[in-house]
Design a protein around this nucleic acid. Sequence first.
DNA 1: CAAGCGCGTTGATATGGATCAATTTTTCAA
DNA 2: TTGAAAAATTGATCCATATCAACGCGCTTG
Lengths: 229, 229
Amino acid sequence: MCAACGVRPLSMCASLDDAGQAELEALLVPVALMSGDILFDEGATATQSFNLTEGCLKLYKLLPDGRRFITDFLYPGDFLGLADQQAYACTAEAVGAARLCKFERKALDNLVQRHSCLERHLLDRARAELSDGREQLLMLGQKTARERVASFIMGQSAKAKQRNLSATTVETPMRRADIADHLGLTTETVSRTLTNLTNDGLIGVEAGRRIIIRDAVTLAALAAGHEAA
Amino acid sequence: MCAACGVRPLSMCASLDDAGQAELEALLVPVALMSGDILFDEGATATQSFNLTEGCLKLYKLLPDGRRFITDFLYPGDFLGLADQQAYACTAEAVGAARLCKFERKALDNLVQRHSCLERHLLDRARAELSDGREQLLMLGQKTARERVASFIMGQSAKAKQRNLSATTVETPMRRADIADHLGLTTETVSRTLTNLTNDGLIGVEAGRRIIIRDAVTLAALAAGHEAA
DNA sequence: CAAGCGCGTTGATATGGATCAATTTTTCAA
DNA sequence: TTGAAAAATTGATCCATATCAACGCGCTTG
């Protein structure tokens, strides 16, 4: 079953040999979520890890007065649980319907210890996530609204490409408020900025949720902080 | 020599047995930096890793027009190189004089593979850094200037405590511009906010670089986003 | 000791994005 | 298909923080 899994080549699973694969499959429990379902809450004891196979999740942290920051959107092939030691660092909520493989942490840790290739794979993922996180910090600390939105679009495009989807027509399952809370902006600013980028011919927006990249070069330059148009 | 090292209990070194310790010691090359010296540049091939033994470093990323974001300040016991796969994700620069242990990545990776305790230690560190990074994202995405400065002070205090230094008298080796570039603010705003916090009796500032925490409870509440004073 | 300079503070003003407030568009249930 | 609710857009105004500017203090250097 795992062998036929669509996200296998994107996941940690790919780093295991057949025997390890079988062990992993024995540990796995499938989970299905509906839009808005919460997989786990920030602060809860992190007893499980997950691998997303279908759909999209958002990870977020809340401040006591309700301000929210979405640290990341996850797509098929992404692993949940890397950043979490004792407690989950974020809340995980489904954006639309989603499916995952659930693992008990204890059992998975045990498997990881016996398969150093898995440990190395997870360390590599952690490295990549750390590196991405630094890029995000730069965005939040120094980029303008226009640059942030451009960065978001290019980032989503890159993720789509990884999943062998079009890099120029980006489907964004989340809503404006989610994008805003991911970029440290407000819904209104995201909306206005998308309108501006459209008027400037850099993108097109269809049916609200589909963004077409019309001038990838300029958009990338904007995202990279080259002040120009 | 390593056995007598002051940062040993804070570092990855502590997770090794005597034999591993000796191996590690054989790989190590000591490095000394002067204030402002650059250890490595963002984007350079990451051929080495480091362990900071003395002083303070800042890690930063630049945008093409000179905007800068300082992702982190490192203190004795901290490891450099976790986030870096092919290329360094940030530039590392000394804040004041510093000393480090330098390791060739290849040799260190080899050692890590043979000592799974080290690999686990690094994975744990990576987890902790990821978790910290998420907290930082929340700060940059949602917190006000006052809350950011409070978070910074509490964070520095926590780091000082880890090194067995006073948690109420925090020495900050970096200058205002560095703090500003770490919080996504300007020098002027940091300065003004410190003045306000002082006037409100939450902190004291001595000789510019020493911050005394006078009301840890209120400061922590502020840092955590409880809108109050 | 004086001059110069880097750094921090403080003040005055400007502005990008937030907030408040309608409208319009989309979604979805009946 | 229709109507109501949710989401997105657009407009008007406000405000937190940036920007521009002046000043002062403490070091360094001649």
